[in-house]
Simulated assay, not measured.
Amino acid sequence: MTTDYEGSAPAGRVQSSSSASQQAGMFPNGHLGHLSAAQEEALERFRAALLDKKLWRPGPPPSHDDQTLLRYLRARRWIVDDALAQFKDTEEWRAANNIDTLYRTIELDAYEQSRRLVSR
């Protein structure tokens, strides 16, 4: 048997909640078209909180699609306040680092060359 750090046995593979749902025949639980009533309600509360904080526009088109909003909710186990904090932090980081400008102006050839250098 191989061992990890300081002779301890390797950690077992942890089954994610999505893979457990997939095995139960409920995949993709927590995704559009597969939300429980509680998850739908959390999404509505999340949208309302984002709108109240001026972090999201309903559109059309919305500033962020439902798939994106659901990623934050799943990541924070459907706790709307936690998802809101993570979303706000992400948007502040994107603004501070001019990510939207980068996406609009990046030269794909230059990006591909730098990606190859980093991955070596």
Results as ranks from 00 to 15, higher is better:
Gly33His: 09
Tyr103Met: 07
His34Thr: 05
Gly59Arg: 02
Ser18Thr: 11
Glu44Asp: 13
Lys53Asp: 14
Gln23Asp: 11
Pro58Gly: 10
Arg76Val: 01
Arg120Glu: 15
Glu44Met: 07
Gln23Ser: 11
Asp65Tyr: 07
Val14Cys: 06
Asn29Lys: 12
Phe27Leu: 04
Gln22Asn: 09
Arg76Ser: 10
Ser19Arg: 14
Ala11Gln: 12
Ala11Pro: 07
Trp56Met: 01
Ala49Phe: 01
Glu107Cys: 07
Arg104Ser: 14
Gln86Trp: 06
Pro60Ala: 09
Arg47Ala: 01
Asp109Thr: 13
His31Tyr: 15
Val118Met: 14
Leu55Val: 05
Pro58Phe: 02
Ala48Ile: 03
Ala75Met: 08
Leu102His: 14
Ala24Gly: 06
Thr2His: 12
Gly30Tyr: 00
Ala11Tyr: 08
Pro61Ser: 12
Ala85Asp: 11
Asp81Cys: 03
Thr105His: 08
Arg76Thr: 11
Asp109Phe: 04
Asp4Pro: 02
Arg115Glu: 12
Val118Phe: 15
Met26Pro: 00
Gln39Tyr: 03
Asn97Ile: 03
Lys88Leu: 06
Val118Lys: 12
His31Trp: 08
Ala42Asp: 01
Arg77Trp: 06
Gln86Ile: 10
Ala48Arg: 10
Pro62Met: 04
Ser17Asp: 13
Arg115Ser: 10
Pro62Phe: 00
Trp56Val: 01
Ala42Thr: 00
Ser16Asp: 06
Tyr111Glu: 09
Ser17His: 09
Val14Gln: 13
Arg76His: 07
His34Gln: 08
Ala24Arg: 15
Asp82Trp: 05
Ile99Gly: 03
Tyr111Ala: 12
Glu91His: 05
His64Val: 03
Ala95Phe: 03
Glu107Asn: 14
Lys54Thr: 12
Asn29Val: 08
Phe46Gln: 00
Gly30Ser: 06
Asp89Gly: 12
